[in-house]
């Protein structure tokens, strides 16, 4: 918490706090207004990422703009997913992995010693390459999993209903599943499962959304659905997306960052970043141009 001490308002508790502040608007809000996203910016300053002794990514300096889509592109093994995982401290889940340098979330270093990684991950959500709905839970329970499990808070059904509908609408999945919310999440198609995972991620109202090749396991139609969704979500969230697919990067992102390896066994590096159009039309670096034009990778 900043020294201001002003409790940030999260929707699920908002009914109480918000009601006091906004009075009669409240009733309307619950139904119409939703994700209280504040879309933070992030900055990486001199970030080195290690797996044990192995330096995987070296010297990343990168600003990530709020309410925009930043795409990470580059050949396999260049460390783009690794960088993504440092943005919500998922990197350190792997034993022996650690990070040096600064990763700032609105100016706050998320690797500072007084930071709870759990809180970081609530603020910076993540969608994975392969859809991974919780197999023991229904669609409904999957969406509210993050809310329900956080702090063991008792939430009223009327509130979770609102969250589920909002999140599923936000993930463009509502119309497909509204009649079978109690069905197991694992029974959906791959593309639907991935959108369910996105709904699950936005249900906890993060401010940044990380996407690790979210469409790489999906068919072309599902991929398009995800890309449309990314477009819509960026009005609310800061989005960082890793992709193998350069057309996808060109279609969905505002900013593109290109990573590359100096060689086998060498750490990955951020080669350059800039507005997507510039990176694709007139890259400053030769290797970026080579990669984009398909000469390697």
């Amino acid at each position: 918490m900043g020294s201001e001490g002003q409790a940030p308002v999260k929707l699920s508790v908002q009914s109480a706090v918000g009601a006091a502040a906004e009075g009669k608007v409240e009733a309307q809000r619950v139904h119409e207004v939703s994700a209280p996203s504040r879309a933070k910016r992030m900055d990486l300053n001199g970030v080195n990422i290690y797996y044990g002794k192995f330096l995987a990514v070296e010297g990343v300096n990168l600003p990530i703009e709020p309410r925009a889509v930043t795409a990470f592109i580059g050949p396999s093994g260049c460390g783009k997913s690794t960088v993504l995982r440092t943005l919500n401290r998922m990197h350190e889940v792997i034993p022996g992995a650690y990070v040096t340098g600064e990763v700032l979330l609105d100016g706050q270093d998320i690797y500072a010693s007084n930071v709870d990684p759990v809180n970081v991950r609530r603020t910076v959500g993540m969608v994975f390459q392969r859809p991974n709905p919780f197999p023991t839970m229904s669609i409904y329970d999957n969406v509210i999993a993050g809310l329900k499990l956080e702090k063991g808070r008792r939430i009223r059904k009327s509130e979770t209903d609102v969250v589920v509908e909002r999140s599923l609408r936000g993930a463009n999945l509502w119309n497909e599943v509204k009649d079978r919310l109690k069905a197991p999440g694992a029974g959906l198609s791959g593309g639907q499962q991935q959108r369910l995972c996105i709904a699950r991620a936005i249900a906890v109202e993060p401010e940044v959304l990380l996407m690790d090749e979210p469409a790489s396991a999906l068919d072309p139609i599902s991929t398009l659905a995800i890309e449309d969704l990314v477009h819509e979500l960026k009005t609310e969230f800061t989005i960082v997306i890793v992709t193998h697919n350069m057309q996808q990067a060109a279609r969905v992102s505002d900013t593109t960052a290109f990573y590359n390896l100096a060689g086998i066994g060498q750490p990955g590096k951020l080669i350059e970043y800039g507005p997507t159009q510039e990176i694709f039309s007139s890259p400053r670096e030769k290797q970026t141009e080579d990669y984009i034009s398909g000469r390697f990778g």
Binding site: S113, V115, V120
Partner: peptide, 9 residues
């Protein structure tokens, strides 16, 4: 509002 990330590590 600042991000609410502080707490015990």
């Amino acid at each position: 509002a600042p991000a609410e990330i502080e707490g015990s590590a």
